[in-house]
Amino acid sequence: MNINSAQIEGIYIGQLATIGPDKTSTGIYKVFSEQQHEVTELGLSGDIQVDKRVHGGTEKAIYHYPAEHYALFKQALPHLSDSFVPGSIGENISTHGLLDSEVHIGDTFRLGSAIVQVSQPRRPCWKINQKYGNAHIAPFIMSEAISGWYYRVLETGQLKTGDSIEFLARLDNSVPVADIWQIFMERLERKDGKEPIPKIPGLSDEWRFE
């Protein structure tokens, strides 16, 4: 099993802001935090979650994004290189050493003193494109399968920057987070998007039926 434990290099907490020409409310603008945060079933204390369709709730409580992916953005869109820094895509947690191709849906981790489980990929919305001022960001995330993932919280606890994230367990017959995107994109190409994604251990039902 090729999976690493890692250190939390950054915790990022959403601030209420607006985005786009219609001044839509959003929590995508995150700020680095050195404080200790409560990990609840609905996420990190102090984190603003505005649009619960794409972030928030028990199945999307905490968003983890691998810092390694920013190098891919910089290579693909060098004119925006300075914008691609940890925290900028809207993540709550940033690490090195855990990738979408290695972390599986349903994997359980100890996050600080909390226990969490990978529930689904992050499905990028228009706000990501708007934030970076480029319409190619969301399609690039999907095509490269570098969306990061959400956690559901199994046991509440506390978390701060510098804490460890420890791999605990993996479900039988699980699949990597990145593979969900391959399944999803193949369904789009076949135009059978109304059919649910086949049952995958640990995958949130709300994502399967989107």
Results as ranks from 00 to 15, higher is better:
N2Q: 02
N2E: 10
Q15I: 08
A17S: 10
A17C: 02
I19K: 02
I19T: 05
S25A: 15
S25F: 10
T26V: 00
Y29H: 10
H37I: 08
V39E: 07
T40R: 05
Q49C: 15
V54M: 05
Y65G: 09
H69D: 02
A71E: 12
Q75N: 04
Q75E: 13
L77P: 01
H79L: 14
D82S: 15
I89P: 01
G90Y: 06
I93G: 02
D100S: 02
H104C: 15
D107T: 11
R110F: 00
S113E: 14
V116S: 05
V118K: 05
R123P: 13
R123L: 15
C125S: 09
C125I: 10
K127I: 14
I128G: 07
N129T: 07
N129C: 10
Y132N: 03
H136M: 07
H136F: 08
I137G: 02
E144D: 01
S147G: 13
G148Q: 10
Y151K: 01
E155L: 04
Q158T: 14
L159V: 09
G162Y: 07
E166G: 04
R170P: 07
I180R: 03
W181A: 03
M185P: 05
L188I: 14
L188D: 11
L188M: 15
P196A: 13
P201D: 08
G202N: 08
L203Q: 13
D205N: 14
D205H: 13
W207P: 00
R208V: 08
